[in-house]
Design a protein around this nucleic acid. Structure first.
Lengths: 149, 149
DNA sequence: TCCATGTAGTCAACTTGGTTGTCTAACCAT
DNA sequence: ATGGTTAGACAACCAAGTTGACTACATGGA
């Protein structure tokens, strides 16, 4: 049996590939995972580019690139920060929220298919097990997202 | 609860970080995951650069770069293919096998600590569950390893 | 209040680790 | 024999990060 990290990497890759393929079939713009993580982050909190960079685990310059792309494509827009004239809040547009909603449904489909393949309870054990491990090593704070290669 | 792929990504990252930290503590050259996957692959089968590329999920040119590095650093060497004059088998040197052995022990330690944190049986379910899912989506052939970001 | 220090965002140069495209030599199936 | 395929190498390019520098603004003392 392969070591755990390899199983994680392969499963992550396999699910991501399926997600990407189906998005393309539907004709939706195939954003990268990082874009998706930004959506998910913005759904929960108002955030600046710097915040996004920290969340993703990249520099603010790298985060700015991603935000620029999302802006060009119409998924987010920048609003002036109410108290800090340097800063801008990045917020989801309707297009961005629609995309996120669609993506969430697609992930849900894939997860459901996974449950069919390996069993509902097994999938449940995997999810709670991994979450518990993350809690154990990282405590409360958000673990890094970007896979190292 | 986060969607499964995010849990996979975060756990992969967390384990990889721990592995990397401990390697550095010991003072061993901190190779990237891709190098480690090559070692593991070469332990099981004789392989050419093309084989390695397929295993990693990258082009043969990218694989050639990695093999070149490992060659320079003394972890692998190239042997003429017995029947195909174009091809070369990439094989582990003693240094390569030693590194792999050490890394295997370290992974085993980390896995053991994971088992302590979430329970032996839970870890077992995770491993077999993921393997089963991979079997389901990819059949016999090896899934890609490189995470998409 | 003024000033020193710190931060958000942008621009530019560079690095890394991949890609595609092309070529040669060798293989292999008709 | 020969036409199509493959292993490996070389080159040009690309994508997505990095570091560094700079401006405008913020903030917390003396």
């Amino acid at each position: 049996m392969e070591p755990v990290p390899m199983l994680l990497a392969m499963t992550y890759r396999a699910m991501g590939d399926q997600f990407h393929d189906r998005l393309r079939q539907i004709g939706l713009e195939p954003l990268r995972p990082a874009h998706g993580y930004v959506f998910r982050f913005l759904k929960e909190k108002r955030a600046t580019t710097v915040d996004i960079g920290q969340h993703l685990g990249v520099t603010k310059q790298a985060a700015a690139k991603i935000v620029n792309e999302l802006d060009e494509w119409g998924y987010v827009l920048r609003e002036p920060h109410p108290t800090d004239k340097r800063a801008q809040y990045v917020t989801l547009t309707t297009k961005g929220r629609d995309y996120l909603k669609f993506a969430d449904n697609l992930w849900s489909d894939l997860e459901h298919e996974m449950a069919e393949a390996i069993g509902e309870t097994t999938l449940g054990t995997i999810k709670t097990g991994l979450a518990e491990y993350l809690q154990h090593v990282h405590g409360g704070d958000q673990p890094g997202l970007r896979p190292v290669w």
